[in-house]
Design a protein around this nucleic acid. Structure first.
Lengths: 143, 143
DNA sequence: CTCCGTGCAAACTTTTTGCAACGGG
DNA sequence: CCCGTTGCAAAAAGTTTGCACGGAG
């Protein structure tokens, strides 16, 4: 669990943007969460930042590839440090409360997936950027 | 491509709801689309129904398991006939325009996925209801 | 006759934007 | 100083709800 600050800082610099306290706080929070965090949690976790700043900073962080946005799940969007920072993994999504959790699938399955995805993409004229395998169900809390 | 009306009708009946013209139109449209359709398209495709009716009917259809809602993708939700009606498949999602398309993965891969998902679910305390494997990228139109 | 569904408008939630002020480089 | 960033408030986008009317069973 090495702090991603250096990488984020570099990405922001490259885009001529600053790594301000607010942004650092968001990255910190996402890093500690280790799963996609809903906007609501972000809002009241960092209550010192107005929501507009949070949204704006998340947009910036997304643009430089530091965070990934997952729309929908449970009404509002969730955010997580990007795969480029924390590596590829997939998500459990609770259909009841919208909570998301990380998990990993066996590497060889991941390989098969990748291959299948490429084949499909080629056939459909898609230019693939990645895949998302989410397991839907009820999380332990909602059982 | 057999019309799903009978099945939808039965599900609505069981819930003591009617299969009205508006609902039929929505099901028809979704059936013809063969892919998750964005709310916007639904709205101006069936301009004779006010948006509130469309939303309400989609809620009902979702509750009886006739349609599935995919939140997010491209800002607004997308809807598709449920897997119980049209069988399991996965989706391509264009990260540029939000368009979704259906596709199928090889059955044996689907089997491996299912097995892996069950294992994960057990380990995480999830009660799984299904999985979604989406390929993200740029669709042919947005290239 | 009785409900369920409809239509319209208004409310609500989530996300984005305008603009003036602030502050680090 | 300059320009990116902040804070506040207002607006836009997406979705839900209240209520009276109309139509199917």
């Amino acid at each position: 669990m090495t702090a991603p600050h250096a990488e984020v800082w570099e990405r922001l610099s490259r885009a001529q943007q600053r790594y301000t306290a607010g942004r650092r706080a968001l990255v910190e929070l996402l890093h500690k969460a280790g799963r996609p965090v809903g906007i609501v949690e972000l809002l009241d976790a960092s209550s010192r930042l107005p929501q507009s700043s949070i949204y704006r900073n998340l947009v910036v962080l997304e643009q430089v590839g530091a965070v990934t946005r997952y729309p929908g799940a449970g009404g509002s969007a969730h955010y997580e440090l990007s795969e480029e920072l924390v590596g590829h993994h997939d998500h459990l999504v609770c259909s009841n409360c919208g909570r998301m959790e990380d998990y990993d699938v066996p590497p060889e399955l991941e390989g098969d997936l990748h291959a299948a995805m490429d084949a499909i993409a080629a056939r459909k004229g898609f230019k693939p950027t990645g895949h998302r395998l989410q397991l839907t169900g009820r999380c332990a809390r909602c059982t």
